[in-house]
Design a protein around this nucleic acid. Structure first.
Lengths: 370, 370
DNA sequence: TTTTAGCACTCTATGATTACGAGTGCTAAA
DNA sequence: TTTAGCACTCGTAATCATAGAGTGCTAAAA
């Protein structure tokens, strides 16, 4: 199970069992306390069978392996990014959400089932609350968009508003300018003709039939194709987020320093966010697979101070979006990963019902649950 | 000209000419320097005809009127919120944007004219850059929405996706559940019938004709009415913002304190933001009127640390949105107000062209300018 | 060979003390 | 009414001493 990305497992030296235990405890303790953790504290708090001195020796070993650091000579140790990575890859056990919380969340989604437009904001707010970090949710996009309906609306002289409805109810709109003025009636007829020909087709199919069309329709068709193509590659730019203010209260961000500013910038600058989302998710991991980026992984400077837990949701090869949590590097990964996976599953289920309804057993039987 | 809201002008005691001058200079200086300003500094920097001692006397007077404060006994004075309010209402002169900047901005909008979906993000980013604060732009909403086109898409059993296109190209979507299953063809026919009857009508008109319809169509029509009604009152929940990270770098927010957190929360919590936007804008000020909220005006706790410069844009009684800048109380109001007004004008122009094209002289002749 | 007790050492955090300087308020004279 | 002069206040920065937390090392114990 390779839920790490960009880090080869083989890079990681083996640890003895005791070292593993200690690293695990140090991470746990550090996540709780925020600060460096001391040998004595560990021994006392976890009733270890060996002495602080032994712990110190092991700590020194873990430090020379690059998994721990000291802020200064006479402080305790805290995990490095590599330490967290090792932890996530090898030591962490997933902490699934308490059943009561799962039910509460499922119930919220159940109640929102008819209001499509509220799905993503809900997912975002649930994720933020559950994880304590800032959540990010992108709208699902079809990998192979299917034409459903086109609407052409005259706005001004030769200016037209084009509204394209794709299978699954996604709506894209764009303006275009005609080479010569037309009446609304003529436009309507043109749209109807295109709708008859193109309904149910993909971009490639439409392209192959452009030759048959008169020039106006052909122009429109080309625009339609470009819109459909655009949605193939990138994640949607419809992005929902929540919980930034809570995130900024985390001790590592109160410094008002470069750290916090860069996090805000990541969440604000959509292009940057999209880059992270898409580059991470392109090497498609399977459904249910969650991807963890720790400290920007050396690739994103703005993320140096934080970690991201990400996954795709939706129906693979059909319509997927991304969904994740941004938090401090010192993050309760086990819990966050569960939360992300859980919300992704519910949301995926709802999207699935929407696309190819009633053909598979739901992961979560909403109706049965209440 | 009453561009202040919620503060009666008559509350404001008269100031002597010299006091006005000093308040003006103190505000200007404080905005520049961030800190309290000293009597000596003022005299030297602005070559005043009177001595620091005189300035101190006047300052004491202004302080007892409530327009100035001292952080501590031996510091200079800085304006209070009331001081800023007086400044904005009486002393400030608007500083219109440099012509070059106006041109640059107009050019950007001109280039984006065909991509409707980029208008608001562009407005938002321009506003943030120009003002140095965080910008907020809501999508325009029609006060009296006009039905244009309806689309019913079968998704699953009795579940339907309803897409409603309003005049001006606004698109609303919602799910609904039918009482009994139907085919896509039947739905299409129903939608076509409704489209024929309702095209060009308002909610009230539609309501009066519900009686004529068979039950399915009547159900759908009721939903359509509720959607149209919803858009009458509140500002759109489609909100664009930009520049938060820059705002958080302002000295009053680097403290990572309550102040900065509450600002982030305001911008994040849409319901709160909508409350501010709508309550402020309901007592409709005329086009071109800009509204200034200083320090939350005692009504919004979360805004205590900041000011908002807001205006409506669009076509009154037809389709309007809100647009504004959130910044520190210590804000260059003259400049910000100009920026807000300028962007609102351009955006209003574009919306106008879209709604009722070619019938009035454009405020900004895009094409002529390049 | 591994573990551990003991101790010296290092570094930070905290508080007290001091000195400095910026800016005012007041008074008395112009 | 204005202003020069001066005492006074208060915050900031620097310096210093101290306490305490935690380690690293050494030598003894297991």
């Amino acid at each position: 199970m390779d839920n790490q990305q960009g880090t080869k497992m083989t890079d990681m030296p083996e640890l003895t069992e005791r070292q593993s235990l200690l690293l695990k405890l140090i991470v746990r303790e550090h996540v709780e306390s925020t600060g460096p953790v001391a040998s004595r504290t560990l021994v006392e708090k976890y009733n270890l069978k060996f002495s602080p001195a032994t712990v110190r020796n092991e700590m020194a070993a873990l430090e020379s392996l690059g998994y721990l650091t000291q802020p200064h000579t006479s402080a305790g140790r805290m995990p490095t990014e590599a330490g967290f990575r090792y932890f996530v890859a090898r030591l962490m056990e997933e902490q699934s959400l308490p059943l009561a919380e799962q039910r509460r969340i499922a119930h919220q989604f159940y109640q929102a089932r008819d209001r499509i437009e509220s799905w993503l904001p809900l997912a975002s707010s649930v994720l933020a609350q559950t994880s304590g970090g800032a959540s990010v949710v992108t709208a699902p996009r079809t990998m192979q968009p299917v034409y459903k309906h086109l609407e052409l609306i005259l706005t001004h002289g030769r200016a037209i508003l084009l509204i394209l409805v794709l299978q699954g109810g996604m709506v894209e709109q764009q303006m275009l300018a005609l080479s010569e003025p037309m009446t609304q009636t003529a436009l309507r007829e043109a749209a109807d003709r295109l709708n008859q020909i193109f309904a149910g087709l993909r971009a490639a199919d439409i392209e192959s039939r452009i030759g048959e069309l008169p020039s106006l329709e052909a122009d429109v068709a080309r625009l339609v194709i470009s819109i459909m193509r655009k949605s193939e590659g990138m994640p949607s730019d419809e992005i929902y987020q929540h919980g930034l203010s809570e995130l900024l209260q985390e001790p590592e961000f109160v410094e008002g320093d470069v750290a916090s500013t860069s996090v805000v910038r990541v969440l604000e600058e959509r292009s940057l966010l999209q880059a992270v989302l898409s580059e991470t998710l392109t090497p498609a991991v399977g459904v249910g697979n969650v991807c963890v980026l720790i400290g920007g992984e050396g690739r994103w400077d703005e993320l140096r101070a934080c970690s991201i837990v990400l996954t795709r949701y939706g129906v693979m090869d059909y319509a997927t979006g991304a969904l994740g949590v941004v938090g401090p590097i010192r993050m309760p990964y086990g819990r966050t990963i569960s939360a992300v996976r859980f919300v992704a599953n519910i949301l995926g289920e709802m999207v699935y019902e929407m696309y190819e309804p009633g053909t598979r057993e739901p992961l979560l039987d909403f109706e049965g649950q209440f």
